[in-house]
Amino acid sequence: MGIFRGRKARTDGGAVVSDRNASRADLDALRAFAESRQGVEAYVEPKTSVTQTTLLLVAADGESIRRRVASAQAAYEFARKKLNIPVYDANLVGVPSRKRDYDLRKAKGTPPPSSSSSTTSAPAKQTPKELAAIMTLESVAGVDPLPTNPSFDELMRVYRKARKQAHPDRLGGERTKWDTVEDAARTLGLPD
């Protein structure tokens, strides 16, 4: 009959675990990215309670692509042998700051580094939904309230701290806080 065919595997916290494995399309997307960009490096991101093993490629300008791979060993072999690019363990070296800078520039809508504006302010008039999202991030992060109309950098600082406090790996797979933080970030238009 197949009445359970549509059910998804879930973690102890209730999060849906993706059952899709790495595909040929994922590898093709990684290969196309590496061939069309300069200074590409690979970062292997290990499997967590929420995500499968992924391979993150970061170009010299910070543009990136992330796709699933079968295993960490497969990621290392693919990056070294097929793409001929340096590969690192993201747990040991972290994600390069140029990727975060690129994502922030893209989120802010600012041009590449030729112009140097250090901070931009949030819109002058915040909606009640945005104010509630800011209060959510503050409470999860455990920080003092932000000033009225906080800057983008202030919001990002609190958002990063809230993500750290609410991460499912830290809370034994429980995703409730994590989902709340991510919803608040989406409301405020913050990049991940």
Rank of each mutant, 00 (worst) to 15 (best):
R10M: 13
T11N: 10
G13D: 09
V16A: 10
S18V: 05
R20I: 15
R20F: 10
S23K: 10
R24M: 09
R24V: 04
D28T: 11
A29M: 06
A29H: 12
L30T: 10
A32L: 11
A34F: 10
E35I: 06
Q38F: 08
A42C: 09
A42S: 02
Y43F: 15
V44T: 06
K47P: 05
Q52K: 14
Q52E: 14
Q52M: 12
T53P: 11
L56Y: 10
L57V: 07
L57T: 01
L57I: 08
V58S: 04
V58H: 07
A59M: 13
A59N: 10
A60T: 13
D61K: 01
I65D: 02
R68E: 07
R68F: 11
A72Y: 02
Q73Y: 12
A74N: 03
E77V: 15
A79W: 01
K82S: 04
L83H: 04
N84H: 13
N84A: 12
D89M: 14
N91E: 12
N91V: 03
G94A: 00
P96E: 03
K99C: 04
R100H: 07
D101I: 14
Y102D: 05
D103K: 12
K106V: 15
K106A: 11
K108W: 01
G109P: 09
G109M: 09
T110E: 00
S114I: 14
S114L: 14
T119V: 15
T120S: 06
K125S: 11
E130Y: 11
L131C: 00
T136Q: 04
E138W: 01
V140H: 03
